[in-house]
Design a protein around this nucleic acid. Sequence first.
DNA 1: TGGCGCGCCGTAAACGTTTACGACGTTGCT
DNA 2: AGCAACGTCGTAAACGTTTACGGCGCGCCA
Lengths: 344, 344
Amino acid sequence: MERRGVGIRELARQLNISIGTVSRALNGRGEVNPQTRIRVQEAAERLGYVPNQSGRTLRQGSTRSIALMMRISSDRMASGETFFMGLSEGLQDTLAPLGLDLVLLPSGPSHDMFEFLRRAVERQIADGFIVTDTQRTDPRIDYLIRRRIPFVALGRSLSGGPHPWVDLDFEGVVDDAVARFVKAGHRRIALGLSVRAVNNRVVAEEAYRKALAGHGLPFDPALVLRVPNAEGGGQELGSAVLALPDRPTALFVAQETLAIGLYRRFAEAGLAVGRDLSLIGFRRNPSCQSLTPALTCYDLSLQKLGARLADILVAEIAGREEAAAPQELWPMHLVPGGSETVRG
Amino acid sequence: MERRGVGIRELARQLNISIGTVSRALNGRGEVNPQTRIRVQEAAERLGYVPNQSGRTLRQGSTRSIALMMRISSDRMASGETFFMGLSEGLQDTLAPLGLDLVLLPSGPSHDMFEFLRRAVERQIADGFIVTDTQRTDPRIDYLIRRRIPFVALGRSLSGGPHPWVDLDFEGVVDDAVARFVKAGHRRIALGLSVRAVNNRVVAEEAYRKALAGHGLPFDPALVLRVPNAEGGGQELGSAVLALPDRPTALFVAQETLAIGLYRRFAEAGLAVGRDLSLIGFRRNPSCQSLTPALTCYDLSLQKLGARLADILVAEIAGREEAAAPQELWPMHLVPGGSETVRG
DNA sequence: TGGCGCGCCGTAAACGTTTACGACGTTGCT
DNA sequence: AGCAACGTCGTAAACGTTTACGGCGCGCCA
């Protein structure tokens, strides 16, 4: 790179003490005279000395940072970014006080997610990893377990043995949404989801069936509507709803951005969400905030979720003792809007 | 961390050659028998040898990665920034083929941006930096110049000497928007902006005045409306417009998310954007995509912008020879919506 | 007074690479 | 035959840090 900055040797030379003492003084490890410790700290501050990360990592085998791997895909961009930003904030809040840094590793849509992770791990970029976008079976998880790398997954997966993860409480949300629909008198309740998001799709369908059964309602496969998540997917979903022979009166959309096109499609047909259809979306999303009537949906504290992930990962790095791997569903709470309907 | 992986020594031992030869064989530097090179490469593949990044960095003083620093603030999150994701994609596209990695460094809102950068720089986290959210005078830029660290700024700044930057073509957009308004018969054209975003605010105001003057229109300070960017800022902007004695017929909003509340406020007043007010927003934003009528605004290719930034930074790292630092305005193109109005 | 313990500090090895330098054997030319 | 040139490879130093180990001086107790 450039002229190297002031190193520990230079600092020691200026103070007429050995580099060993300087290191001990700054790291608080080992015995060192309180007075010289202060001298060292002051000098370090004055000369702008910052320990070289590579030297440190090389010696003690631990970078003081953790990595959050995220996939950037164009269809995800609309909803994804706020998600990771909120998460990062919560992560920072707990990591910074521990002297840990957070780095985000964005993998392009073209990258193989497994290879991307493998590279990051083997370059020893971080002490622990947060993997997102988990798939039903995910080789990344097997790999991390096998290599004994501390990690926590954001999202469930069937892969690997028991490993720590946190996932959004999809079941709880679907349960609640269906209960609200039923309470409002609806009996034909549809489910709209994206053809992507394989893992969540399975979870959503499962939860949907269970919720229906819980209320004694029959399951009609025709009411499960799958549309692409790309541009126009929402409109397609709207068309699909309108085209159904016995049109459902309520709809839960697992991918809330689909609601936008759906509103539009309904408006084109002279119908209105919140009057001719009762609609509930999954997660609160900035992209949906300008819908009228406002979309009823569920929200969560990304900041707290990030903090929780950090806690788990830190414990994982410290070495979790025998205790079972934490596996948690993250609760979400209702944000009522005007998109629901009471059936007379 | 964990048990260290297989190092270059182990690899050399298995092949009965020296570590120097192994290194040369893998890096392609120095003379080495093509046959042994192949042998080494195969063995490396087989044993899963990956050079340790810290050792490498320590020796040659260059991490093979570049860092994008971004600030996460809650008010920015609410506006649904898809900005950095699109950027990352473009950056990856050009960096990956060069063997460079990209890391995103999110600084919490509580962090001092200067200290945050300083720390990252001095820990030698990356060979080059992309700084965003530049301020009118920005100590980070002075610092980077002084330390001779390769960087490129996303956003203008008065700080430092001539340094490479790319910024959105705010002037071009405002020019075009005002021209459209004038062509449609408007003469009282207002400007709405957030009280934050200090740098852009100055640029926007300047461009606004120039554009008015270019069309022979008077500048009325009362038509420059500043509102907070927080929740409800848009409504406030709407109220401000409605409260003006001689109500403007056209409005350009520099912070496009303000349009959402503005639509709402107008609806409350029984008025409609696109009929009672001609509105143009700055940048296309997913948060605004569900507005009806669609908001006329301007868009850009984030991917290409990211690629350009990468190009500049790579050149900067390679050592720009005498040539002037690239300073570019990034063009944006119109995305017509229904929020404009023709004045009879 | 001799010895022991203790607080503080210096010395040097180690982490895993890259690379300048020189050695070695072979070839080719004079 | 002698010498230079060349291709290939081994040796060892360096990057900046942490830390095990031992040493030095001092005080305390027997």
